[in-house]
């Protein structure tokens, strides 16, 4: 069955990534912090923090894209894409919001900085997509459109989050850190990014498949009811 095959691939990939990626990451050298000293070992969090954040942002755009199709064409496929991506924004967003403070505690001495625009906007983004799932769950008829509108507004937040690091001098490291990485850090960094992107893809298609099945089942139930094949 298609579903079992997808689950098999997912679990195999997870198993490989679980072992492979960390071993590369742990072997990479530690960069210097702004004071010129080598960063704490906790810097290793950077490799997967950036990767999960990337997945979360990617997912926001996937969700916004699906929402546009949902709003403009009432496309059920677009709707399925949007809801699958929204759930993954919540999953990867939570990963970002948890791994970030773990590193910050070591490097900055605090878990969270409320004045840091990037941290706060990421939190707002996460809450927006939590609200998206809430609306889908409790919104009743017509909640698809509402949720799509919410997703689009949420997606407007993302460029602002990303650019905020360049425009505001926040405590959060700047995006250009990636360009200035030590060559020995580069390979594991990109590998980690690739591994998490693949993981994202697999999870996304798993969830998308589920949503399409759910939509087809609902259609079949309605059709059977209309044809008088089933008594309810």
């Amino acid at each position: 069955m298609k579903r079992d095959g997808l689950f098999g691939i997912a679990i195999a990939l997870l198993a490989v990534a679980f072992v492979l990626v960390p071993s590369w990451i742990l072997a990479a050298p530690l960069p210097l912090n702004p004071n010129g000293l080598p960063m704490a070992y906790a810097q290793k969090i950077f490799y997967f923090h950036v990767a999960v954040a990337w997945c979360a942002f990617l997912s926001v755009f996937v969700c916004a894209g699906g929402s546009v199709f949902q709003l403009a064409k009432r496309s059920p496929r677009g709707d399925a894409v949007a809801i699958a991506a929204a759930e993954l924004v919540v999953v990867f967003g939570l990963c970002t919001l948890v791994t970030g403070p773990l590193w910050a505690r070591k490097e900055w001495g605090v878990w969270w900085v409320w004045k840091d625009v990037r941290l706060v906007t990421m939190l707002i983004l996460w809450i927006t997509f939590l609200a998206y799932l809430f609306v889908r769950r409790y919104g009743g008829p017509g909640s698809e459109q509402l949720a799509s509108g919410l997703a689009l507004f949420g997606a407007v937040n993302v460029p602002i989050v990303y650019l905020s690091v360049f425009f505001w001098r926040t405590q959060h490291p700047q995006g250009k850190v990636v360009g200035s990485l030590d060559p020995a850090m580069r390979a594991p960094f990109w590998l980690s990014l690739a591994a998490f992107s693949i993981l994202y893809g697999v999870l996304f298609f798993l969830r998308l498949h589920l949503e399409r099945q759910r939509q087809r089942l609902a259609e079949a139930q309605l059709a059977a009811q209309d044809a008088g094949l089933v008594r309810w």
């Binding site: 906790a42 969090i45 505690r105 070591k106 900055w108 001495g109 605090v110």
Partner: peptide
């Protein structure tokens, strides 16, 4: 300015916890 690094938390614990 940057705040001072945190004490009392092992890096290994934090990395493992995050992962």
């Amino acid at each position: 300015p940057m705040m001072g690094p945190g004490e009392g938390f092992q890096s290994t614990t934090l990395v493992t916890a995050g992962y």
